[in-house]
Design a protein around this nucleic acid. Sequence first.
DNA 1: GTAATTGCAAAAGATTTGCCCCATT
DNA 2: AATGGGGCAAATCTTTTGCAATTAC
Lengths: 138, 138
Amino acid sequence: MITNKKNDLQACLNKNGGRLTRQKLIILDFLQKNHNHPTAEVIYRTVRKKLPNISLGTIYRNLNYLAENDFLIELKSKYDNKTHFDINNQDHLHFICLNCGIIYDIKRFEKILQGKFKNLGKINRIECSLYGICKQCR
Amino acid sequence: MITNKKNDLQACLNKNGGRLTRQKLIILDFLQKNHNHPTAEVIYRTVRKKLPNISLGTIYRNLNYLAENDFLIELKSKYDNKTHFDINNQDHLHFICLNCGIIYDIKRFEKILQGKFKNLGKINRIECSLYGICKQCR
DNA sequence: GTAATTGCAAAAGATTTGCCCCATT
DNA sequence: AATGGGGCAAATCTTTTGCAATTAC
């Protein structure tokens, strides 16, 4: 099994009428193994090693599909002004270093915030980034 | 006095060697009076009514200057994939409606988060967006 | 077989930049 | 008077899209 999300992906495709392509699977697999919050360009360059003819358009189309269906989250960084992608394993927030751009996950966060904002109605997604200087850069 | 941030802006310009132009002042003034989180394009179209020859390049250059010097904050919305601008009056978070794109401020938030993440080192800025469906759209 | 998806290339959209002229200091 | 900033237009960069060929079902 190339990825343990493969079954979830298949289920999602069945429900919505899509097809399980090598491209989708390899992109999802890559993101499951890499938690560095890569950009589309970085994903493209890496996935190309396995699928030399894949195009950037396909990368974007599939990343968008996966994000819309909650397999991934999209994160916009002020550091480089690009969209970064991350497997949506759990609600968490991000620490982004203003000096080097590195992005860390900070886990166990949803309870604090979900509780705090109950009165606003249903919150589909919380995206929270802390900008500062990381320990390596200090 | 066109804006109560004018003195702060002048002080900032003195320190860094810039000049107080009508363009900077009118952009800052506009954002002080409008808390709708406009995009550069919207700011451009509105400011053009006062300064008919101002160019989009100038809008961007000045918005970037003002954001770098902490007069403004930049907010990237998933709804339209654009950068929105907001006067940096206090730490607050944003509610963004996934249906209509409206952005609300949610105030009084910094203490909770600043306290929560002390151990990560200095946090320069917290940017937190809650995505959901607003009351008008429900 | 047929309908969705890919690869490719062109287009679109947002933002930045070079250069010459004008305005602020 | 000196020079930083503005206006304009071109360039850049990221992301999207149209279309013919390919692939999954």
